[in-house]
């Protein structure tokens, strides 16, 4: 019995590479100045899905919501073994918070009728870890967060070891289910050279300058068409999308400025160290 898996993956700014240039004067983030990457734990979600397909058959579809540039994430998924890539892109989806994002993803996932939906535990741009559980609630699927090991999958019952911070637990539940996957669950497989040769030519219609129907058909025939869906395609109600659909609003953004050097500097000598310890004793911090 094969399983249809949908992996939700996000293209994120590489927050480790953030330097001064990435912050604008007004304290907002200059996203253009940041390199983007495949959200790390979403690669673990993809690997988990690929492993399920390899063991049991079925399909792996990667779904991402983002700007057209997120097609790179879909190609990357194909290089690593995904069967299908779908981009949800729509200006009206911009500025969605986690509630609106999960609503939009839910509208798209429903069309795909999956057995298993996989998310990363969290995305490094916000570290919220909210979209997974919220998407599950919207779909009416049970959620199993923090997957560390998939122990078994038989018929419509899955058994999973999950990390609960100060320990772990083993749970089982019936499909369909939504899983959020931890970094420790697996090691994502590398890109396959042959798949790269083939899928680097994969394109979404919106990446073609002036696509004619013939061109699209050719891409589709060769399995090189990335699908792009709008909010209308997935039947999303605008009231729940984008700014209107997002209950949280930004009140203020401040960039973190390092206040430099107001400390007492001491030399790395016996005298310096003794002075330090002496002061700490005097102010009753130690001793």
């Amino acid at each position: 019995m094969g399983y249809n898996c949908v992996v939700c993956a996000k293209q994120v700014p590489d927050t480790k590479q953030i330097t001064g240039d990435a912050m604008k004067e007004d304290g907002t983030v200059n996203r253009g100045a940041l390199p983007t990457i495949f959200n790390p734990e979403d690669l673990n979600a993809l690997e988990e899905a690929l492993a399920i397909r390899d063991a049991h058959g079925g399909t792996v579809t990667v779904l991402t919501m983002g700007p057209p540039a997120a097609c790179d994430l879909l190609r990357e998924s194909l290089f690593r073994g995904a069967d299908r890539g779908i981009l949800i892109t729509d200006r009206r989806a911009a500025a969605s918070d986690t509630l609106a994002t999960s609503y939009i993803l839910a509208c798209a996932v429903r069309k795909l009728e999956p057995d298993i939906v996989l998310c990363g535990r969290q995305a490094i741009d916000g570290d919220t870890a909210q979209v997974g559980p919220q998407l599950a609630e919207k779909l009416g699927f049970p959620v199993v967060t923090y997957l560390e090991q998939l122990q078994s999958l038989e018929d419509d019952v899955i058994r999973v070891k999950r990390n609960v911070g100060n320990g772990w637990e083993v749970v089982s539940c019936k499909l369909p289910v939504l899983l959020t996957v931890m970094e420790t669950a697996n090691t994502p497989r590398p890109r396959a050279a042959r798949r790269m040769m083939k899928y680097k030519k994969a394109l979404a219609p919106l990446e073609l300058a002036d696509a004619d129907a013939g061109q699209l058909d050719t891409l589709k025939e060769k399995g090189l068409l990335l699908e792009a869906w709008t909010l209308d395609d997935i039947g999303a109600e605008m009231a729940w999308c984008g700014v209107d659909g997002s209950p949280t609003k930004v009140h203020r953004i401040q960039s973190v400025v390092l206040t430099g050097g107001e400390y007492h500097e001491l030399p790395p000598t016996d005298e310096g160290v003794a002075e330090l310890i002496g002061e700490l004793i005097e102010e009753h911090t130690i001793g």
Binding site: T98, D127, Q130, P133, Q134, K138, Y146, N163
Partner: peptide, 23 residues
Amino acid sequence: ATPIGRDLAPTVASTMKCGLTAD
């Protein structure tokens, strides 16, 4: 923002259709 809180709060927020700010 414990493993339980981060599992529960988003589920409640989604059901109540209200906002939630993490951490």
